[in-house]
Design a protein around this nucleic acid. Sequence first.
DNA 1: CCCTTTTCACCTAGGTGGTAAGAT
DNA 2: ATCTTACCACCTAGGTGAAAAGGG
Lengths: 257, 257
Amino acid sequence: GWAGEGPGAGGKSRHVCHAAARLEMGSLWEEFNRLGTEMIVTKAGRWELGWPGGLQRWGAPPFPPPSLCRRMFPTFQVKLSGLDPLADYVLLMDFIPLDDKRYRWGWGNGGRGSDLGELSPSLPCRYAFHSSSWLAAGRAEPAAPGRVHFHPDSPAKGAQWMRQIVSFDKLKLTNNLLDDNGHIILNSMHRYQPRFHVVFVDPRRDSERFAHQNFKSFSFPETQFMAVTAYQNHRITQLKIASNPFAKGFRDGDPEP
Amino acid sequence: GWAGEGPGAGGKSRHVCHAAARLEMGSLWEEFNRLGTEMIVTKAGRWELGWPGGLQRWGAPPFPPPSLCRRMFPTFQVKLSGLDPLADYVLLMDFIPLDDKRYRWGWGNGGRGSDLGELSPSLPCRYAFHSSSWLAAGRAEPAAPGRVHFHPDSPAKGAQWMRQIVSFDKLKLTNNLLDDNGHIILNSMHRYQPRFHVVFVDPRRDSERFAHQNFKSFSFPETQFMAVTAYQNHRITQLKIASNPFAKGFRDGDPEP
DNA sequence: CCCTTTTCACCTAGGTGGTAAGAT
DNA sequence: ATCTTACCACCTAGGTGAAAAGGG
């Protein structure tokens, strides 16, 4: 859908007040959201912990190193409009906890502690498969360091951002609290809402005074998800395999053109 | 080597006057240059002429499309120093003709026109293999449109440029005079000198008046090359195969670690 | 004849979920 | 019992020169 407006739309500068964002692949996001989107989080592999020797003989850029952290799928992509074509903007994303709970995937509170097994009011009961579903399992872990991901083309002119779809396909998720590669740190078994921010780069010398006027935020509810280290809902797994080209090796039968 | 200084070093602004660039992989460049470096130029394939249908189902960025134009090998890479860490710079490259001749690869002017077959004075006679060598073959074609390649991270702060090696591995060469993808257009069978430019982004309103002070250029003679559509000197082919990891499939015997 | 274009097998580089082992 | 990690086969995407075909 168009333009999930952020809070405090009043008092915005003319450079962002007309900014609008349309989520791309909306029907795919909704298909996932109906089942309860899950996103894989992993720790980085050995490639990120140290730099293997003997690799620099030729001409590859030495940075960034390969990463075993996971991208999001679907990829968060937006089509922008309403920016000042000649002004500079920075685009970035962050992730906010949807509630203060941690979850488990299972069959209800069979023989468990008394405070477990309640369905979160914000979790539709259809986030389930066969007799399993997501159940609240206590209070959330201490929040991970709140990081942001800048779109690597930032900063750029409004005209350039609006010319084509903006894709956050370099964004990676990790559950490593000590991550040193600038990835987004999330707690597994917790729910998150991606947020998208358009920030006008104010050339005035005292631009800090206008910081609150110079950005606009967008939240698309259909992009919320559960962070997991392995998929729990088999329907989610099957939809990922069916729709992500990198998982084509796991598809069974007839392709759908 | 360090710092191939450009012309007119006098009157440079303080943001660029101390800038220095060290060519990376210098020994590999020199090894190629001793044999007479050749770089492949091609026209774009069908992928660049039109956008194939049915490819946008998921989440890939729609641009840029795949390209069949060729990169340079070795890749042009420099280590920068002497920039103002807090100032913005744009980094770019262009290619200037080394002379006004076109060349052919062959056995001298056996039965050919009288004005052919002269060795260019700037072409060392060792640019040869067996009895073949590069021979001047008339005047240069009309110069292709003079294009520049901006490093895709531009603009960025001096600190960021100096933090790591700057690699121009996205730069692509084409012989298509009608190229519409912003690639570098070169004439096959002509010689070129790559040039590297550091441009300070002057925030002053009348910055055009200081444009000549705000950039510094670097030329590394060991990076000059002959543009070709197919390799002529077999020694060049073998050195490319031996040193470019993407050509590993053509290597014969024992690897050298 | 000399140069260019096209197609191909073979690589690098890295994004998938499956699976089994490991951790708590 | 439940969640996490490490490794794997199998993909996408694209960078190589060889060889054959095409063109003036």
